[in-house]
């Protein structure tokens, strides 16, 4: 559905943030993109959504194809209209607007009737959001804000949703709820999901396929269960070695090289 081929992103014509990234998101799948801070995950998502330009970033090589059409040069609103919608990192709500106004803006590219329908759908999915619809969104709790952010994306009638660290700064219980919703949307509404996470454990539980990105490159990919079984992933992303959790005291990073770096 979405496929990237050798995408290269450069900031300020000098700093290469993403290099030769190729990935594939099949229709109906949940695909995870894992990586630590600064690996280039968010940059990649911004590149796909076409919003790098104001930050001085640019796709300088490779192709981004969505539903068979090249969208590497498309404007952000065009990309949203095609059904490729991002839930940005840290929610990024319109803080001064009410919850409902946030949702309405999510449906900016859609017809009036579709917007009304979308509101009903989001409120049915998140009763909590319905309760707080007239409140200023900036004052909501983190979990509620994340629901509004997801709801806002759903208002645009996406075929593929890209979630940038939905778990960021949320309590474990809230995160579980959010992930449940994502899985439900995927199962019941056939929504395709590209999930970006630092929390590899969580992401590989719901995803069917995963990519690992480091220093702007994809270093490993595979089916989720295969990744979970991989020694390197276990050690560096899941914090396990030999199946048992180990004490941080015993971690000696220099002893063990990541195999994909050699």
């Amino acid at each position: 559905m979405l496929s990237l081929a050798n995408v290269q992103v450069v900031y300020g014509r000098a700093i290469e943030a993403v290099r030769d990234v190729s990935l594939e998101v099949e229709a109906g799948a949940i695909v995870a993109l894992l990586g630590s801070n600064g690996a280039g995950k968010s940059t990649l998502l911004k590149a796909i959504s076409g919003v790098l330009h104001p930050e001085g970033g640019e796709i300088v090589g490779g192709t981004v194809t969505f539903l068979g059409e090249e969208i590497g040069r498309a404007t952000p609103d065009d990309i949203v209209r095609r059904g490729l919608i991002q839930v940005p990192e840290g929610r990024a709500l319109f803080a001064t607007l009410t919850v409902e106004e946030n949702l309405l803006m999510g449906g900016f590219t859609r017809r009036r009737s579709e917007v009304a329908e979308g509101l009903d759908r989001v409120y049915a999915l998140f009763p909590r959001v319905h309760e707080r619809r007239h409140e200023i969104s900036g004052y909501l709790s983190g979990g509620e804000q994340q629901m509004v952010a997801i709801g806002r994306a759903l208002m645009g009638r996406p075929r593929l949703v890209m979630l940038d660290e939905p778990s960021l700064g949320l309590a474990p219980q809230i995160i579980d709820g959010i992930f449940e919703t994502i899985v439900t949307l995927n199962r019941e509404e056939k929504l395709t999901v590209l999930l970006i996470e630092q929390n590899a454990q969580l992401a590989l539980e719901v995803a069917s396929f995963g990519y690992i990105i480091e220093n702007g490159r994809i270093v490993l990919d595979g089916a989720a269960e295969k990744l979970r079984a991989n020694d390197d992933v276990q050690e560096f992303y899941l914090g396990m070695s030999g199946g048992a959790r180990k004490s941080m005291r015993d971690v000696k990073h220099y002893k063990r090289r990541k195999r994909w770096l050699s």
Binding site: S49, I85, F94, A95, E101, F108
Partner: peptide
């Protein structure tokens, strides 16, 4: 409302298709 949205968060506005 879109004007206020752009004022509140320009990138998010772009990501919403504004």
């Amino acid at each position: 409302i879109a004007m206020r949205a752009v004022a509140a968060n320009e990138t998010a506005a772009r990501l919403s298709g504004i």
